[in-house]
Amino acid sequence: MKPIFPVAVITFKEGIRNRAVYGIIILSLLMLTANFLICEIIMREVGKVAVDIALSTVSFSGLLLVLFVGINLMAKDLDKKTIYMVLARPISRTHYIVGKFLGMVALIIVSNVIQGCFAAASVFMLNSMYPAYFQRFSWMMFILALVFIVLSLTLLSALSFLFASITSTSFITLVLTVVSYLIGNSLSDVKALVEAPKAAGIDPSPVTIKVVQTAYYIFPNLSFFDIKIQAAHGLMLSFPFICWTTLYGLVYTAIIITLTCAIFAKREFP
């Protein structure tokens, strides 16, 4: 177990030194500034729009982090053959993967905490500017939404590790991760759409329905972690739902990382 920790630390440091991190933070700061401008135009539910924008910003910049910083951490090692240097040391491939992944998780958590603080600051300022429109707002739901964003990004990052262990270039990993993200977020909507054809006025073939239903079990359902709407309106979520969703995220991530380790252990390097 010992070698995992140094790998995690190195991965984290490598990630945080990446210039892209600064770009992502600047982008999110700009978006949070835009929050003030947009909220000026809203008539009544300023609180809702402010929370929408704040949480979407955190989620979006986290996505950029996973896609452009996270993938490089693992895939570039393979791309640039620096992995030989690591594997030549007394460290098993499983330790390498787990260490890298934990470093990446730490990066996601730290960046989310920073972005979350910025987002909370913008919501807090708008809250003190328009207190009358924040009656249903609850900080607890806001923080829970941030935690769920971390869970969802961790899951996505695990998937990017799996793709990196299969493919040979980081570009293919990026494409596959983006596609998984798109599928993961639209899956339950698509499933609802094909399973209720009459209401939507479409008539999907039985094959389509089966394909969607199969995909539903294979791909991660990222929309489970999307509780921005509840946070924005201060709607309460049941405690079992929170626990089960967390469990779902952790279990799916664990399965993916186990698979990654198994595939990576058998992989032959040219």
């Binding site: 947009i38 809203i42 809702k48 729009v49 929408d52 924008i53 979407s56 989620s59 979006f60 993200y181 798109l182 977020n185 639209s186 909507d189 698509v190 759409l193 990222l222 929309s223 999307d226 921005k228 709407i229 924005a232």
Partner: peptide, 13 residues
């Protein structure tokens, strides 16, 4: 709903 991914609320705004 499908195309706005996880940004349904933002699309609504």
């Amino acid at each position: 709903k499908i195309t706005s991914l996880e940004f349904d609320e933002l699309m609504s705004d």
